[in-house]
Design a protein around this nucleic acid. Structure first.
Lengths: 121, 121
DNA sequence: TTGACACATTCCGATATAGGCATATGATGG
DNA sequence: CCATCATATGCCTATATCGGAATGTGTCAA
């Protein structure tokens, strides 16, 4: 086998920067036609179509036909799995030990950076 | 070019199911050695090491040396970018129109499913 | 029907990855 | 120093993508 299944779930869909940009654009501007999206994000039309196909297949966008155009819109429900998964960790870093844990990590991290002399971004 | 940068950020790191499992395991059990992780998740030791390397490089785990072993632990801070990005959408689906929007989508979705006769998982 | 426009799909090449296997590196005990 | 255990790394193959270019499909207007 090679690379495990990819374009099959939301996690993989949003791993692509271009696709994230599409979603953000839809989040702000609402419904948009393919060409519009392509233009705004500086990508070719086929490229946009392909990404939109992926997003549609994993349920992150919905399409509506309007004459020659196809208006794509965000479907936030598709992000739920991701949101929930990540949420599990948020709890952890907020609740556990009331932040003490993170505090300890920061200390350790700071100490390491002092020693190794390489600076984080 | 081909596939854009991948194992370079948290989004891509968590796109891999195996890596997500590792993170969850660390979330629950805390610090663990490589072999332990490999055993629990039924993967080879090299496989585990490679995944851990990726997770380390994007800042999702931290390592601590303990004799022959290397204990990996979760570093939730690495998940922040993801959490924040997804959070932007959560706001949307909660605030906008006080849920009316989602309600509309559900209606449309239901209608579509009725018509197309294919059932969702 | 024909042409123009909007979009989807296919074919292509380049590349990065996941996984398996063998092996290198590193620490520990004797 | 040597054998052993714990990890990391390198090499290899198969595969799934991303992007580009060309082409197919579908809609509308004249």
């Amino acid at each position: 086998m090679a690379r495990a299944a990819t374009t099959s779930d939301a996690f993989n869909a949003i791993a692509e920067p271009q696709r994230r940009k599409i979603l953000v654009l839809l989040l702000r501007g609402g419904e948009r036609a393919v060409t519009e999206l392509a233009r705004d994000l500086r990508m070719s039309q086929p490229q946009a179509s392909k990404h939109l196909r992926v997003l549609r297949e994993v349920g992150l966008v919905q399409v509506r036909e309007a004459g020659k155009q196809r208006l794509y819109d965000l479907d936030v429900r598709g992000l739920r799995p991701v949101n929930e998964w990540v949420g599990g960790f948020e709890k952890f870093w907020n609740e556990t030990f009331d932040g003490l844990d993170e505090y300890m990590r920061d200390l350790k991290q700071a100490r390491q950076e002092e020693l190794s002399d390489d600076d984080d971004q």
